[in-house]
Amino acid sequence: MVSYLVRRLFMAIVTMVAISVLSFAIIQLPPGDYITTYIAQLAADGTSLSDAEVLALREQYGLDQSFLVQYLRWIASVLHGDFGMSMEWRRPVSELIGERLWLTMAVAVAAILLTWALALPIGIYSAVRRYSVADYAFTIVGFIGLAVPNFLLALALMYFGYKFFGINIGGLFSPAYVDAPWSLARVWDLIKHLPLPAIVLGTAGTAEMIRVMRANLLDELHRPYVKTARARGLDERRVILKYPVRVALNPFVSILAYLFPYIVSGSIIVSLVLGLPTVGPLLLRALLAQDMFLAGAIVLLLGIMTVIGTFLSDMLLLWIDPRIRLEGRS
């Protein structure tokens, strides 16, 4: 168990480092650098800098250094909570991201909870009642869920909402709460707005998880240990829920770890379509405007969020599967 924990923790740290390097690479990728952009901005305002001033600025920001040194400088300031300045907004990046990051998390967690709440019972039902009408129906719905890219699903839902109910679904708050300070009422308003994005984001994952659960459970249903549980006189419903479902839960939970980055990814596009105040629209805008410190910070924070989510689902797996806990003990 300890070795598993250490290994997972190590992987999480390596992943975070990899993500931070990639995020910094994104900041560095576009031709030119921060100063070139800055000079261009100043020029647009009518000021120009002398070559000496430019050189001094470059030194100040360490832009004359190698990639590694620059990266280490950046990471050091990030660790102090300083993500740099947004060129476009002329405000500190951390200020811009603030609430949006938490809302992104809320949307992702809502989507994951929904995925679980739907996939688990449907997967179990489909496996136990294989080839029933409902099983076929779920299979078909699942296939469509897999096939419709979630931005299209969001578009379709918005279209139907607009066409048949005349309402503009989207956003995470009612107009009255958009700029209101946090209060219980505002949280409740948020909760009321979460299901729609959760459905849009969760559909593909739910379809996939139903397939996984169904396949795993079908593998387990005919194992001898299920027969022995029946043979000792246990009620059929409890036989299924206590034994094969419990075993089939392991692959189900381990896939959850990969579901998290997938959903965070998807939330970017869905937020754009549904107009959610998450980091998604901010990232797109930053990328299109080549506001690279902002973009890099968002990619980094999303990555770190994902690593934490993945780590937590690994811990869940540890809790659920005694075989991992026993590793290296027996």
Partner: peptide, 24 residues
């Protein structure tokens, strides 16, 4: 294998968006 694990736990869309946006 570990590299694949790392790659799989990174949210891809923001990353590819970043790469794509860097295209001149």
């Amino acid at each position: 294998q570990r590299s694949i694990e790392v790659l799989k736990s990174i949210p891809t869309i923001p990353l590819w968006m970043g790469l794509a946006a860097a295209m001149p």
